[in-house]
Nucleic acid binder design. Structure first.
Lengths: 184, 184
DNA sequence: ACCGGAAGTAAGTGACCAATAACTTACGCC
DNA sequence: GGCGTAAGTTATTGGTCACTTACTTCCGGT
């Protein structure tokens, strides 16, 4: 028998790493770096906890991979939105893409918040490698928006500022009909 | 002798609670709720770790007290700034106050980030008490800005959005001369 | 058919940490 | 000046967690 009533799907290491990253984004988004146990990630993947450490050297490496993926995918969402938009409609297209993220993929926004505080902690602890990697990934997001908005730095700032406020209000759990959303 | 070469300043419980809150803001701001040990807070205060639990029932209670204080003080900073400003200059006065926070009190901004993700984690874990308390404190901040800006919700959103983007860029550790700051 | 390597597990280990218990020290007040 | 009470300590405990070691299971190529 394969294993007594146990549906174990064998995958290549590369495929498993992929599922670990997906699971890690979900878990880290909810409970943050320190608040997420590797056990929780492994359970979500459907694999034993020690096996994670054959796929990734450390918990930090898992977080970094998840963080990079998350920023990368967010950048792609905006890139795709702008791609299929009229020449002057980048602003609206990206705003719509953001709305879509809010309703369909809130964990991606939560994860961004977790990334920010994780970088701050790492920097405070003297680790600049991690922050450097994340800043690089985040810059690509910034540059993507900058380019789409015709190279207008003020406009880029305004767009990203709105985005970060949305992230904040979502984190705080204000319901969509609350008055703090009035200004949008 | 009081104690062999040990400078132990005896305080009232209320005074001690006060220093615990100050220390907690510093520590939680740097390393977050889960990443901060009560030992670290106690060391900064200069008391033994178990004594914290005579001043506060749980670690969570310490965090909540620190969070409330932090939001309250931020609100006061803006209120004071607006108070001594010309009738139409609330916007600039608050922006200047924010600049002052960035350079003089960055830990207060870091703490805000930590508060946001802590609320999200608590909500995800089914605890709505904590989030509710924080939302109330944050709303006072929002209302303060709203009032100062003449009841204009759009303007309030714009101001707070800029603030949260600043928090984010600071968390990520972008140096002040980096191009991501160009739009400010 | 079989064997080498890749996928995966079970059982620990040492470190850390929130909270408790039991005890000691100092100050204010009569 | 002693005594009750508030301020503080040391020692400990039960639990969690990242990571290691040593083992087992399965599949593909020859």
């Amino acid at each position: 028998m394969t294993n007594n009533l146990r549906l174990m799907v064998r995958m290549s290491a590369e495929e498993r790493r992929e599922s670990v990253i997906r699971a890690a984004i979900t878990e880290f988004a909810r409970t943050g770096y320190k608040g997420t146990s590797t056990e929780a990630i492994a359970r979500r993947v459907g694999v034993s906890q020690p096996y994670l450490f054959r796929l990734f050297p450390t918990k930090e490496a898992i977080f970094l991979a998840a963080a990079r993926r998350c920023l990368e995918e967010t950048r792609e969402v905006f890139a795709k939105a702008v791609e299929g938009a009229p020449p002057r409609g980048a602003q609206q297209a990206m705003a719509a893409a953001y709305d879509h993220l809010i309703s369909e993929d809130p964990e991606k926004l939560q994860m961004q918040m977790q990334i920010y505080v994780a970088v701050a902690s790492a920097e405070a602890a003297g680790d600049h490698e991690f922050g450097s990697a994340i800043r690089k990934a985040w810059l690509e997001l910034w540059d993507g928006a900058h380019l789409a908005l015709g190279g207008d730095a003020k406009e880029t700032t305004r767009f990203l500022a709105k985005g970060t406020l949305i992230n904040t209000l979502m984190s705080l759990g204000f319901p969509p009909d609350h008055r703090v959303w009035d200004g949008f």
